[in-house]
Every structure is written in structure tokens, then in C-alpha cells.
Design a protein around this nucleic acid. Structure first.
Lengths: 190, 190
DNA sequence: ATATTTGACTAACAAACGTTAGTTAGCTTG
DNA sequence: CAAGCTAACTAACGTTTGTTAGTCAAATAT
């Protein structure tokens, strides 16, 4: 099964560089070092490759979020843990995360529905954390969806920034993200 | 020339929904209401459509940024004007902006170089505003690139949020964005 | 040692792709 | 009114696409 993992990995890298639709099975095979038809000894279709990549990383996020939400800490602490989750996954699976935001449009049928459900649940849990912070007076009272969207877009774009700044100290990254995303919400309260 | 504009507009909508590579010339023609070969009476190639869309919106941003940077106001004021620029363009050209962040990978040759130069210059000007704010003691001193990237990703993702919240009051959106992106940098200074 | 499975290969398919050629109806211009 | 231009059409092109069929050598299991 090492081959299969290699195919998925190389495909993810290619999809990120050229996009899913612009990457052919011959491209993928070439970057693995085999011929295109040989791919089908390991995967069912080109679409299945994308499904595996996207659903795996979506489930990583869902699992991480669920275990964070189980506890009843302060909202600011929960937010920090969510930030940690994003940083950890970004470092571990940079290429896959780069596909999350846009390439899901190439999913169809059940895979598409499942992916969107995971994403929606994730955002809903995230939203609850922000609402909690605002309700308990820890966060500024802003438009909730806009705050969610703003925080999330920074976290989602981390991968693009990380790719060209891999030398940065992770602890520094973490603490600056806290300042940017948490302190911005908690400080300056009137 | 009305047809040409219509083609560009319909193509932008299609590209955003299905991606550039997954949208065929027959798809585009269909959404315009003509046959695929008739497109070539108005445009040179499929790639040219993407180039027109991306370079036009990139130049909109560049022009906006340049006229903002001409003045010597406080950094916080400049940042607010940059936010205004993003909001204005997002409302006026939602579909086109949705392509900016990812579909440029389908550009080749001179168009790609030109686009990336525009984008890079834009980010450099943006960075100067943030640096100015930090140097003059108006903004918190954080990792500059990370701050830039965080602010920019929120602004770049506005289009996705706007699409499903078109009923929101623009002035409310503007003021909440100020709070989120400007106050977060200025408040809580030690 | 024999049988079976694995995983690579070449050949090839049908469909879809961007695009060109050639034609024609209708509008614009002298 | 005639000439030329515009912008649509159909037919068809050569490529590239994802994928299937069939083959075969090496590894694995019995």
C-alpha cells in the first residue's frame, strides 16, 4: 500500500501546482514513475484520488475540532486550541490543505455532500466558540459570521504563507497568531 | 462589443462555479446563448478570456492602491481606505475576484508574469502601510509578513462571504471590518 | 515446486477538448 | 443599390482526456 500513499501524495502536490482538472493521469503517473494505466492497480479513478485527499484532511479537522469542543474552557482558550490545530495540520499536510478551499468544486455526488457536511459542521462548531466568547463578555461583540469568516480565512490561508516561510520558528508563529486572532477580539473592550 | 463583455462576464461566472479548466468553450458559449466557434469572432482563445478577467481586476486593485498611497495620512487611515477598496471591488466584481486567488495558476507566459508582478507590487505597497503603522507606534509590533498575510486573506475572502450575504448593510460591513482589521492592530498597545 | 496474486506494461478506445475552415444571413456604409 | 463587414452557423480537425483490455514477469503463498 506504499504505492497508493505515494500516488495520493504526488497527486496532491500536482493538484496544488496545476489544479485538479489541469493535472492528467499521465502527469500523476509520471511524477510517481509509472505509466498512467498502472495507476488503476491502486485507485479506482481520478476523482477517487481527490475524494481521498479532501475527505481525509476534512476528517482531520473535524476530529480535532470535536475533541477541542468536548472541554468547557474559556472561549479564548478554545480559540487558541483551534489555532494550534490549524498550524499543526498545515505543517503536516501543506499540500492537501491547499486543495481544501477550492478544489472541492470538482467533487460530485456523495463525496461532495459528505465533504460539505463536514465543512459546515466544522464552521458551526467554530461559530459556537466565537458566540460563547461574545456572550460571556470575553470577546468584542461584532457581527458573528463576519468574525468567523475573518478568523477562518486567515487560518485557511496559512498554508500559502507557510510554504514560503518554512524556516519560521513555530512557537513564534503560534504566539503571533494568538496576538493577531485572539487579542484582536479580546483587547480594547469597552 | 457588448457581446465580448457578456462573454467575459458569463465566463467569469462559470469559471468561479466549475473552475477554469473544467469549463469548456462549449459551456461558455452555451451560457452566452451561441455556439462555441462563434466565440472566436470576439476573443482569440480560452486563455485570453482568463487573462482579460484577471489582468483587469488586478489593475483595478493596483490603481486603487496607488492612489491611496499617494497621500501621507496616518497608517490606520490608509488601511481603512484599502479596506474600502476591497469592499467596493468585491461588490462590483464578485465573480472576477473569486478567480484572483487561485485561477492565476492557469496563466502562462507574459500574462502570468504580468499578473504576478501586479500582485507582488500590490502586496509590497500594502506591506509598507503596515510597516509605517508599526514604526510610528500606531500598530502593535508583530511579525510584519504574518500581519500582512492575515489582513489580506480576510480581504481576499470577502467575496465568498459576500456572495451569500448580499443583503448585509454595506456601512455595517465596512465598520465591522474596520473593527476587526484596524482596531485589532491599534488597540491593546502596551 | 507449483499455484496464485500483485503490479507493472503496451495498445487502444470513445468522448471531450480547443480551435480552424468555410459559409451565410443581415446590417452598415459609400 | 451595391460592396463590405459583422457575427452567427455547421462540419470537422488533430490532440488530449480518463479509462479498459489483455499480457506478462516477479513476488508471495501453499
Amino acid at each position: 500500500m506504499n504505492r497508493k500513499e505515494d500516488i495520493i501524495l504526488k497527486a496532491a502536490r500536482l493538484f496544488r501546482k496545476k489544479g485538479f482538472s489541469s493535472s492528467s493521469m499521465r502527469d500523476i503517473a509520471g511524477s510517481v514513475g509509472i505509466e498512467a494505466p498502472s495507476l488503476y492497480n491502486h485507485i479506482k479513478s481520478k476523482h477517487e484520488i481527490l475524494e481521498i485527499i479532501l475527505l481525509e484532511i476534512a476528517e482531520d479537522f473535524t476530529n480535532g475540532m470535536n475533541s477541542i469542543c468536548e472541554s468547557d474552557k474559556k472561549a479564548s482558550q478554545l480559540l487558541k486550541e483551534i489555532i494550534d490545530l490549524h498550524i499543526t495540520l498545515t505543517i503536516k499536510k501543506t499540500d492537501q490543505i491547499g486543495l481544501l478551499t477550492h478544489e472541492w468544486i470538482n467533487l460530485t455526488g456523495a463525496a461532495r455532500e459528505k465533504f460539505l457536511k463536514l465543512r459546515n459542521d466544522y464552521e458551526l462548531n467554530f461559530k459556537k466558540v466565537i458566540e460563547k466568547g461574545m456572550m460571556e463578555g470575553e470577546f468584542k461583540k461584532l457581527h458573528i459570521d463576519l468574525t468567523l469568516f475573518s478568523t477562518l480565512s486567515t487560518l485557511r490561508w496559512l498554508y500559502a504563507w507557510y510554504k514560503s516561510n518554512q524556516d519560521m520558528d513555530i512557537d513564534r508563529l503560534r504566539s503571533d497568531m494568538y496576538t493577531l486572532l485572539v487579542d484582536g477580539l479580546t483587547q480594547g473592550l469597552d
